[in-house]
């Protein structure tokens, strides 16, 4: 099922607001389930979602463990002498943090699945200036490009005989200094080429732009927006009023 990008923006906004307002697992876990199901139904399956998230999942798991280790609340589950290493409260805070981060990621994925051109048009039809909408979409586009550049540079430097895994922390940092500069230079060069191409295509030649693409909300889209807003408002009302 496909939804208008404005519906996706609305969902992402609701999810982000709820993820930032609540740290209660009884709210976050059902929300996460709903977000994952929504992504699964609209963007090609849950397995696809997990595969895209797997790198970040590890990062979040580590952060969650750190939260648990340093939080003294609740029942002590693991300790060395008088030092509590793992507590019930710590684990629950860690899981809550994990869920919040996943929800924010899900929001990003919901927006990203809209496609760059559709997203720009949605923002423009929401009365955001075209230049800012375009800049936002280009910024989203640059993230995977930055990742590719870093990956390629890392591969190239290893192919020159450097075993990064065996380097000490200090040496590794010095090596990354060599990697970062050319990557940033290349990204700036790509950005410059993009700017020139945009000028060549008469970007901002006139104050107003027309667009071949027009987005139209269907009844399902309106329903999805109303549903998301009402659920968000209801959750906030129940907890805060």
């Amino acid at each position: 099922m496909t939804f208008d990008p404005r519906v996706r923006l609305c969902w992402a906004l609701c999810l982000t607001v709820l993820a930032l307002l609540f740290d209660d697992l009884f709210v976050l876990l059902p929300l996460l389930a709903v977000a994952l199901i929504a992504i699964g139904c609209t963007d090609g399956g849950l397995w696809h979602v997990f595969r895209r998230l797997r790198w970040l999942l590890w990062f979040f798991v580590i952060i969650s463990v750190i939260q648990s280790v340093f939080n003294p609340q609740g029942e002590v589950l693991l300790s060395i002498g008088s030092l509590a290493l793992l507590t019930g409260g710590g684990i629950s805070l860690g899981v809550a943090f994990f869920c919040r981060m996943l929800l924010l990621l899900c929001s990003g994925m919901i927006i990203a699945a809209a496609g760059q051109r559709q997203l720009v048009q949605a923002l423009v039809q929401l009365k955001l200036p075209y230049e800012i909408a375009f800049m936002l979409s280009v910024a989203i586009l640059f993230l995977p490009m930055f990742k590719d550049q870093i990956t390629n540079s890392l591969t190239a430097i290893q192919l020159r005989g450097v075993d990064i895994k065996r380097l000490s922390f200090n040496k590794r940092m010095r090596l990354y200094k060599y990697l970062l500069l050319p990557v940033i230079t290349r990204i700036v060069e790509i950005a410059r080429q993009l700017a020139v191409s945009m000028e060549m295509l008469a970007f901002r030649a006139y104050e107003k732009r027309t667009s071949y693409l027009r987005l139209t909300m269907t009844a399902y889209d309106y329903l999805a927006v109303v549903f998301a807003v009402m659920v968000t408002a209801a959750i906030i009302a129940v907890y805060y009023i």
Binding site: N152, T155, Q158, L159, R160, G161, D163, I164, K165
Partner: peptide, 14 residues
Amino acid sequence: LSLSACGRKIGYLW
């Protein structure tokens, strides 16, 4: 073989 070990055996020019 790690990438660095491959690089010491096979040179790859991008």
